[in-house]
Design a protein around this nucleic acid. Structure first.
Length: 605
RNA sequence: GGCCCCGUCGUCCAGCCUGGCCCAGGACGCGACCCUUUCAAGGUCGAGACACGGGUUCGAAUCCCGUCGGGGUCACCA
């Protein structure tokens, strides 16, 4: 395969926040397709929105991608962080040997810098000037307010708004007057593209042929008043210049495609007329289905606000003494902002998070970062999202569908032809099950490693406390909680009883009544068994792997089933009726702690 | 509203292109039972869908048309 027909895919995030789970799927599919075809996968940062873009966000997105194990051949260079579980730690840089996509335009575009659109203004402007001189684009001077008024009028008249091309703009004729006026610099202006009246047929690998009639698209903006290109323009220029052959993106972009094709055609004519550049190719398009919420709307950050609002309203309904103001006070938030939030006047993420913390509810995970915080494994995420809109269509030998696989499998089997057309709801319960299965399949050692890395990143205080626990005990702990966690965050609830000081352990009165004080069918009470077992344990040198046998002998000696002594013991050392298997629990606690807790419990009986 | 996309169990996915092997298969969830020192985990079994209406055909989940339903998009955001 020559370089010219090598497949090049790209993921082009806008650095305005965290990486959305839908974006992660797009990136994953782009990556998998490039790998499958032996091509290159590229990242381009679309930071042409000056107000919303940030370097911090770009770094975060790159980091999330790396964490997922999605590595790019071309794009910004990025050091892999230590918390990057999938890639196995730090010490590497992704994108260090990327292709050159801009140094011909200036040294500032050498290396990874060429993959940031905000630095490529010189390139876009050169094309824009050629387009203007060819009569395919023109400066427009309407203000945002004027356009708004036109739009409102159209809506009021029940008509679709389309930008009316000014009478002095003639397709194919350079409007020097407007250009000079723009160059003078006194008036804010945008550059609009002259959309010709041709039908566009988009050939899509997923949807087939999609026809757009001429006249559907108006003269859209290609350069904003601040001098930055719009998405439509930058994407077309860069995809061509960067040799992108396949564009995989979400279906919400389908309606943009005719604009992009129109631009490609105009730019190609420019080249053919000998004015500038080389002909623009139309990449292969593949628009994938959207990812929905459980309630059937497009999954978005707004879901967090919705969920927090609901929780707050329920809290207020339950406790009428609560008001938006008291809620705001307790959560340390601005009262006005909270009131507005509850009235659905804003969807502040800050308010949502604050309210959630205060009320002890968890917000739905939307961004990859949210899933990281909750304690999902990257392998579970990539496996699960790959199934949202794609399937390998293979059967296991036992007749079940193949649905558990890793990214290596994707790289080997991913194909455009098996991308579905129907939107998928994001089912967190199934994701949870995928993650739980993965966690359980880990050896105790590997579980401990993943768990410890997660604690270090998200629960440093707990991680620090565990630092004083011996490796053998940690491994025992890992074994005890592994099957009980669907996500790593669940571990917190399971280890609380171990982290708690013996003197601080709280006893559940009901559990004491039920398992210690109430007499069983044989007339014996748990508390009596507990006293006997206490002496057995006190007589032991230490609690080791033989403890299970000791307890069984003790039970047999008293003529009762294991449960009759395990439950009282469990209440004594954990405070309640639920804990990991009693032998493991006692081994982790150790003899001193076990006896101390039994004695405390006996004191409460 | 205009334009565009979609419509198989509650949810995700297989089957659709190349009609019969489909009174539709798998997974998650749900129910029951088994295992069991609690909670989990695990095992077995079960309930559960071709949106509707017309065609075409010997035969349709699969092909065609219509209806209804859902979604996306109509920015100097991407």
């Amino acid at each position: 395969m020559s370089a010219s027909d090598q497949v090049v895919t790209r993921f082009a995030p806008s650095p305005t926040g965290h990486l959305h789970i839908g974006g992660a799927r797009t990136a994953l599919f782009c990556w998998a397709y490039a790998r499958k075809r032996g091509g290159r996968f590229m990242i381009r940062i679309e930071d042409t929105d000056q107000a919303r873009s940030s370097d911090e966000s770009a770094r975060g997105i790159l980091d999330d991608l790396a964490w997922l194990g999605i590595e790019w051949d071309d794009g910004p260079s990025h050091a892999v962080t230590a918390s990057d579980v999938a890639a196995g730690g730090g010490g590497r840089v992704i994108g260090a040997s990327c292709r050159d996509v801009g140094s011909a335009w200036g040294p500032e575009l050498a290396g990874g810098a060429g993959y940031f659109q905000a630095r490529r203004l010189k390139i876009y402007n050169a094309y824009i000037e050629h387009l203007v001189r060819a009569g395919r684009a023109y400066p427009a001077f309407e203000t945002a307010a004027e356009l708004d008024a036109l739009r409102k009028a159209a809506t009021a008249a029940k008509q679709t708004f389309k930008y009316p091309r000014p009478a002095d703009v003639v397709p194919g004729v350079f409007n020097e007057t407007r250009w000079e006026r723009a160059l003078a610099g006194a008036e804010p202006h945008v550059i609009r593209f002259v959309v010709d009246g041709e039908d566009v047929v988009v050939r899509d690998e997923v949807l087939g042929e999609v026809k757009f009639a001429a006249g559907e698209v108006d003269d859209f903006v290609i350069r904003k008043a601040d001098g930055f290109p719009t998405y439509h323009f930058a994407v077309v220029i860069d995809d061509e210049l960067m040799g992108v052959t396949h564009v995989l993106r979400a279906q919400e972009h389908l309606n943009n495609t005719p604009r992009h094709v129109a631009l490609q055609r105009a730019l190609t004519r420019l080249a053919q007329d000998g004015r500038a550049g080389t002909p623009f190719r139309t990449p292969v398009y593949a628009h994938m289905p959207l990812i929905f919420n459980p309630d059937g709307a497009k999954m978005s950050k707004r879901d967090k606000a919705k969920s927090a609002r609901k929780a707050a309203k329920e809290a207020i309904a339950k406790d009428p003494s609560l008001t938006p103001a008291t809620l705001a006070g307790r959560a340390g938030l601005d009262a006005g902002l909270v009131a507005g939030f509850l009235a659905s006047e804003n969807d502040s993420l800050e308010v949502a998070a604050g309210l959630a913390r205060l009320l002890g509810v968890s917000l739905p995970e939307i961004d990859v970062w949210d899933f990281r915080k909750s304690g999902y494994l990257p392998e579970a995420i990539t496996n699960f999202i790959a199934l949202l809109g794609w399937s390998p269509g293979m059967k296991e030998s036992d007749g079940r569908d193949v649905e558990k696989f890793d990214t290596a499998f994707l790289a080997q089997h991913f194909d455009l032809s098996r991308i579905g057309r129907t939107n998928a709801r994001f089912d967190r319960v199934k994701l949870l099950s995928f993650n739980a299965d993965l966690l359980q399949s880990l050896s105790d050692e590997r579980f401990l490693a993943a768990w410890s890395a997660w604690l270090a990143a998200f629960e440093p205080a707990v991680h620090a406390r565990l630092a004083s626990v011996g490796r053998a005990e940690l491994l025992l702990l890992a074994a005890a909680i592994k099957q009980r966690c669907k996500v790593l965050r669940d571990s917190l609830g399971h280890i609380a009883m171990f982290l708690c000081a013996d003197a601080d352990l709280a006893y559940d009165r009901k559990a004491i009544e039920k398992f210690l004080l109430k007499a069983g069918e044989d007339g014996q009470r748990g508390v009596d068994h507990l006293r006997a077992v206490r002496e057995v344990i006190a007589g032991l040198g230490a609690i080791d792997s033989g403890i299970g046998g000791e307890l069984e002998r003790a039970a047999a000696g008293r003529g009762v089933a294991m449960g009759a002594i395990a439950q009282p013991l469990r209440v004594a050392v954990s405070g309640g009726g639920v804990s990991p298997p009693i032998d493991l629990t006692l081994r982790i606690l150790g003899k001193a702690s076990t006896l101390a807790r039994i004695d405390r419990c006996l004191g409460q009986c």
